[in-house]
Structure formats: structure tokens, C-alpha cells
């Protein structure tokens, strides 16, 4: 099947990529743009590991065709921190022990960043609902609720603090 040329905007940068028409956003960010922070989990829309932001809304990278996000702003986990400064959500996940193996973490962080940008003070119910499409098989979610609470509070009041170095990789999509 002939490849198609797509003009995509990912993490603020413009890319021109030649891909199969059936390439998903996940295929393109990982395999073409080498942004491997976004994880391929179930690849069937169940686990939420591949969550990216499309025009600010959390979307499943595995079930969204790349051709369908032409003209949209795509954000991946790599865009969450500013330079060396981690996003408050990343700091809070590291500090609260909300990331263990770290494989699902990028998906959770993108889902949570979409939530907090729309709802700066979410209720526990809203948090629970927002992450109910992301699966974690390590932490049991309680630490995540704490981390999201802490990040929300921090984003409303003070600038982000740096967590211990050992947790930085897991919350930046560095887990394999």
C-alpha cells in the first residue's frame, strides 16, 4: 500500500512524515519520531499506556490514525517537563511512589495533565473517573490519588520541586 505524506505538529515541532495510511499516532511517535516515552501496552484501547494529548484532550494513541490528527496539536510525555524542570505531576508521582515499573506512568501523566488543565481542583470522584481508563498493575492507585492531589495543590500555589533523581526516569517515560 502506498505511503501518505502527513504534516504533524508534535510537542510544538512540525514534522513531515511518510507513513502507511493505517499508521496510528502511537506508531508514528514511537517508530518514526522516536519519542519512545509513549508506551505500547495492550495496543487495543484497553490499558491507556499510549495516551497522548490531541488539542489538549487525552486520546488513545493506539486507536487514533495519524492521518486523523493532521492539523492538531499532539503532545506526548516528552513535552510535559520544561527543560530540566519536571512537571508538578511528574514530581508528585515520583515523591508519592505513584510510579513503580513506570510503564503505565506516561499514560497516567498525560491523562492527569488533561484533567488538571480543565479541572484545576478535581474532586476525588473526578480524579477516580478520569484515570479509570488507565490500568496500572503495580501501585494499586492509592499513591496515584495522593500524587494527583498533591500536584493539583502545587499547581494552584507553588512552583514544582525536584524529586529524588532515582524516580526521574520512570515519570519521564524512560522505563522500557
Amino acid at each position: 500500500m502506498r505511503k501518505i505524506l502527513l504534516r504533524l505538529r508534535v510537542n510544538g515541532a512540525h514534522h513531515e512524515v511518510a507513513v502507511r495510511p493505517s499508521a496510528t499516532v502511537l506508531d508514528v511517535v514511537r517508530d518514526t519520531l522516536h519519542l519512545t516515552g509513549t508506551k505500547r501496552g495492550c495496543d487495543m484501547g484497553t490499558c491507556g499506556c499510549c495516551t497522548v494529548l490531541v488539542d489538549g484532550r487525552a486520546r488513545l494513541g493506539c486507536l487514533t490514525l495519524a492521518a486523523e490528527v493532521e492539523g492538531c496539536e499532539v503532545r506526548t510525555i516528552e513535552s510535559l517537563r520544561e527543560g530540566e524542570q519536571l512537571h508538578p505531576l511528574q514530581s508528585a508521582f515520583a515523591e508519592c511512589g505513584a510510579a513503580q515499573c513506570g510503564f503505565c506512568t506516561p499514560g497516567f501523566l498525560m491523562t492527569c495533565s488533561a484533567l488538571l488543565s480543565r479541572t484545576p481542583t478535581p474532586t476525588p470522584e473526578q480524579v477516580k473517573d478520569a484515570i479509570s481508563g488507565n490500568l496500572c498493575r503495580c501501585t494499586g492507585y492509592t499513591k496515584m490519588y495522593e500524587a494527583i492531589d498533591r500536584a493539583a495543590a502545587q499547581m494552584r500555589t507553588e512552583p514544582a520541586r525536584e524529586p529524588e533523581l532515582s524516580s526521574r526516569e520512570a515519570v519521564s517515560g524512560g522505563s522500557r
Binding site: 484501547g45 491507556g48 495516551t51 484532550r57 487525552a58 486520546r59 488513545l60 486507536l63 487514533t64 491523562t111 473517573d129 478520569a130 479509570s132 481508563g133 488507565n134
Partner: peptide
Amino acid sequence: VASPLIRES
């Protein structure tokens, strides 16, 4: 329906 992420699409 399904999950919030599914309902986004």
C-alpha cells in the same frame, strides 16, 4: 460507555 479515553474518540 467503556472508559473516559474511549469516550474521547
